[in-house]
């Protein structure tokens, strides 16, 4: 094992130009792979936190008594995920509507009675936000006897959710494609190196070398190429992100919310290693000796 690793390292240096080309090609593929992971991670985070930006409006039934409303407000105020609850009576709602209609307030003339419902405006607690808990909470609200309807921008939320799901499909497709590309590059490199050393391998065979002894260095070499490509990709990802964040911070608010998860920085070289290993195994598996 140690000997195989040593031979692989020597070969990496001996055939440095072929290997450098492969490492750069793999790094390019894994960089895109990393960008996809980065985008997926940040989009997921954004999707997770979207509903916290919305105010939940709970429309109450007209017959709801003051006592029932007060009880509901008290119980809602104790909820962990809620930061503020504001009661708006149907009269206040009408006033607000009139204010917002301003010059077109005449549309409300001739109304015999107030058609609006009393409501509660609920602001979510950003620090304790949990998407699942919020969804359950809304479902619970809808089930209350005094609640007419609940509005919380679900259309916008579901659009963003479906966008995220579509992007996830695209991202997974890209990840698979680039993984196959990296495997192919490692496969080709190992195959070229194998053929370049064919004469040497023939001699090893005649001297009694086992398949493991012959394959070992190539598997190590393919794996090393994968890791190096991955490290280069991770480095590039980190550098570009840092530079963009450094320059863009004051001007682009989006940059403030983006985050480069250290796990992605580890996933990329580890993926390179695994894909390099797979590429080498496939390359050697088809060769007879």
């Amino acid at each position: 094992m140690f000997y195989s690793a040593k031979v692989a390292l020597k070969s990496l240096w001996f055939y440095r130009w072929i290997n450098l080309l492969s490492v750069l090609t793999i790094a390019t593929g894994l960089f895109i792979y990393g960008v996809v992971l980065f985008s997926l991670y940040n989009l997921e985070r954004a999707t997770q936190r979207v509903p916290e930006k919305f105010t939940i409006t709970v429309f109450l039934k007209n017959r709801t008594t003051e006592k029932q409303i007060q009880r509901l407000v008290d119980s809602l105020s104790r909820e962990r995920i809620i930061s503020r609850v504001k009661y708006i009576s149907k009269e206040q709602a009408l006033e607000e509507l009139k204010d917002s209609l301003a010059d077109a307030a005449y549309v409300l003339e001739g109304l015999d009675e107030n058609p609006l419902f009393p409501s509660l405006e609920i602001k979510l607690n950003e620090d304790a936000f949990d998407k699942k808990e919020t969804e359950l909470f809304i479902k619970r609200l809808k089930g209350l006897e005094i609640v007419e309807d609940v509005f919380y921008g679900e259309d916008i939320f579901s659009t963003i959710k479906s966008l995220y799901q579509n992007f996830r499909v695209v991202a997974l497709t890209l990840i698979v494609l680039f993984s196959v590309a990296v495997v192919f590059v490692c496969y080709s490199t190992v195959k070229i190196l194998f053929f370049r050393r064919k004469e040497e391998i023939e001699i090893y065979k005649l001297l009694g070398a086992t398949k493991g002894f012959i394959r070992g260095p190539f598997i190590f070499e393919g794996t090393f190429i994968g890791i190096l490509g991955g490290l280069l990709a991770s480095g590039a990802l980190y550098t570009i992100f840092s530079v963009l964040k450094g320059f863009g911070n004051p001007e682009i608010p989006l940059m403030r919310t983006l985050e480069l998860n250290p796990i992605i920085m580890v996933i990329v070289p580890v993926s390179g290693m695994v894909l390099g290993f797979i590429g080498s195994i496939i390359a050697l598996g088809r060769l007879k000796y």
């Binding site: 040497e200 023939e202 001699i203 065979k205 005649l206 001297l207 009694g208 086992t210 398949k211």
Partner: peptide, 18 residues
Amino acid sequence: IPYLRRNIGVVFQDFKLL
């Protein structure tokens, strides 16, 4: 086969050196 070959030393006319 590799283990059999380890019992046999071969000297080739064309040397077969690395």
